[in-house]
Simulated assay, not measured.
Amino acid sequence: MGAAQTRVRFLSEEYLAEMETLASANQKPIPHVNVRVQFRVTDTPESTVYFSLVIEKGTIVKVFRGRIEDSDLTITATYRDLVDFQSGELHAATAFVTGQFAVTGDKAKLLDLMIVLQSGAYHLFVADLWARTTW
């Protein structure tokens, strides 16, 4: 990593750029897992924030602030619930089943997303990133 690890603010451009680097964090390719996700995060310090996640062959290849065209899924969550998810306090399955993460779009793609979000590589990476994150 070279330079000292800097603190990043949750959902900032810098945070999302760090998320995008997960592609090089030992993610194993999963050929059939391809999904484009639009996140709508409410009640943030900046009002509502949109960010997008692109997964190709089971690997996160793009994460950016803003909207994505032709998303497979749109997930709406409160800032607090997303913070709890990223910190490991809220399990993805629980968030979806309870409606804390409201999903519209191709529900079959939700299974693809869950494969990635519940992988060991994702959890290790997010734990490292989270240790440097402020919110």
Rank of each mutant, 00 (worst) to 15 (best):
A121R: 02
V126E: 01
L11I: 10
H32T: 12
A17I: 09
L117G: 03
E46W: 09
I115F: 07
S52Y: 04
L129T: 04
L111T: 15
L124R: 13
D43V: 09
R7M: 11
T98F: 12
K107G: 09
T6V: 10
R80F: 11
M19L: 13
M114N: 04
E56P: 05
A108Y: 12
T98S: 15
Q86V: 13
S47K: 13
T6N: 08
V103N: 01
V126Q: 02
Q5H: 13
L90M: 10
V61H: 01
T21G: 12
Q118D: 14
Q38M: 03
E13K: 11
L117N: 07
G2Q: 08
R65V: 05
D84P: 03
D112G: 01
S119N: 09
T134M: 06
L90N: 04
G105N: 03
A4W: 08
R36F: 06
K107N: 15
K28D: 12
G66S: 07
R132W: 09
T104L: 07
A121I: 11
L82E: 02
E14S: 13
M114D: 05
V35W: 01
P45R: 05
L111P: 02
T104D: 05
S71N: 08
G99K: 12
A127L: 10
G105D: 04
P29E: 11
A95T: 10
V49D: 04
V97Q: 14
G88I: 14
R36Q: 05
V97L: 15
F10I: 12
S12T: 08
R80A: 14
I75S: 02
T74H: 01
Q86G: 04
K107T: 15
I55V: 14
V103M: 01
T48D: 13
E69K: 11
L113M: 15
A77K: 00
V61K: 09
P45E: 06
T104R: 06
E89I: 12
M114I: 15
G58C: 09
Y50V: 03
L22D: 01
L117K: 06
G99F: 14
K57N: 14
M19P: 03
L16R: 04
E46R: 09
L110F: 08
T59V: 12
V116Q: 03
L117H: 05
L111Q: 15
A131V: 07
D72C: 02
F125W: 09
G99I: 15
R65G: 01
D106W: 06
E14F: 10
V116E: 01
T134Y: 05
M19K: 04
T104G: 04
T98A: 10
K57I: 08
E18Q: 13
V33D: 00
D81L: 07
A93Y: 14
P31D: 09
W130T: 06
A23P: 04
A127I: 07
V8W: 00
S87G: 09
H123L: 11
V33S: 00
S12L: 07
M19D: 03
E13I: 10
D84T: 10
F64H: 04
L110H: 03
D84I: 06
F10S: 00
G66V: 04
Q5L: 14
F39L: 08
I75V: 10
D128I: 08
D81C: 10
F51C: 00
A95K: 02
F96H: 04
T76W: 05
Q100H: 15
E13R: 11
Y50A: 00
G99A: 12
A25E: 13
